[in-house]
Simulated assay, not measured.
Amino acid sequence: MNTYNAQADWIPASGLQLRKAGVQFDAVRVDGDAGRALADELARLTGGDPGPIVEAANRRRGVYFLVPVGSTSHRAWPEGVTRLTAGAGHVSYVPVPALEGPTWPLSWRYRPTEPDRRVHTLLLLTALNSHE
């Protein structure tokens, strides 16, 4: 797998930052071990390159699947899934760590490999539904 070395403008140079959903990406959050297992299943299905996936080590231990803007709407998502999107009267923020240096409690489960690559939403949904 190639590692994306050039920094995309949505990845912070250091530490971590919140990014507004609906600009560069939306996100789907699945908490705990279920989210980690899902991320690893997507990696297996995609030959090790599922797209950018962020995990948190605190609280709910959320796993954030960065998907294309608008790709989560008009789909039936299983219970326990949180969609982070933007819309009329609604704004969500997605935590994003830097590629290097201290970023606790966030880290990349799977790093971005290309500037515009995102997790494939339909593949994510299919994998979620197969694990219910």
Results as ranks from 00 to 15, higher is better:
104 W>Q: 13
119 V>E: 03
84 L>K: 13
110 Y>Q: 12
3 T>S: 15
57 A>C: 12
106 L>K: 02
90 H>S: 04
35 G>N: 06
24 Q>R: 05
7 Q>R: 13
89 G>A: 08
100 E>K: 13
44 R>M: 03
17 Q>T: 15
56 A>E: 01
82 T>W: 10
21 A>G: 02
99 L>A: 12
121 T>V: 04
68 P>W: 02
31 D>N: 13
94 V>E: 11
129 N>C: 08
95 P>D: 01
98 A>W: 07
42 L>A: 04
110 Y>R: 13
6 A>L: 14
9 D>F: 09
32 G>W: 11
38 L>S: 01
85 T>V: 12
70 G>I: 13
107 S>F: 10
122 L>A: 04
108 W>I: 14
38 L>I: 08
132 E>F: 00
116 D>G: 07
111 R>Q: 14
78 P>A: 05
76 A>Y: 02
104 W>P: 05
61 R>N: 13
96 V>Y: 05
6 A>P: 03
100 E>P: 09
17 Q>H: 14
15 G>I: 06
42 L>I: 03
93 Y>D: 03
48 G>A: 02
68 P>D: 11
107 S>C: 14
41 E>K: 00
64 Y>D: 01
69 V>A: 05
100 E>T: 15
132 E>T: 06
111 R>L: 15
18 L>C: 09
7 Q>I: 15
26 D>K: 03
132 E>A: 08
8 A>N: 10
50 P>F: 07
41 E>L: 08
87 G>W: 01
11 I>P: 09
60 R>Q: 14
3 T>A: 15
16 L>I: 12
26 D>F: 07
75 R>P: 04
48 G>D: 04
38 L>F: 00
2 N>L: 10
121 T>P: 05
91 V>Q: 10
40 D>H: 11
33 D>L: 15
110 Y>M: 04
107 S>A: 15
59 R>K: 12
83 R>H: 07
40 D>F: 05
132 E>K: 12
69 V>N: 01
73 S>A: 11
88 A>P: 12
81 V>M: 09
116 D>Y: 12
47 G>R: 08
98 A>C: 01
124 L>E: 01
14 S>R: 14
48 G>L: 01
115 P>N: 10
76 A>N: 08
36 R>P: 07
106 L>M: 08
39 A>C: 04
58 N>R: 10
18 L>Q: 12
67 V>E: 12
48 G>I: 03
103 T>H: 00
4 Y>N: 00
9 D>T: 03
115 P>K: 04
81 V>H: 07
96 V>K: 11
112 P>W: 15
96 V>R: 02
80 G>F: 07
4 Y>P: 10
34 A>N: 06
31 D>I: 00
81 V>S: 00
44 R>C: 06
8 A>Y: 05
1 M>G: 14
66 L>E: 07
20 K>F: 13
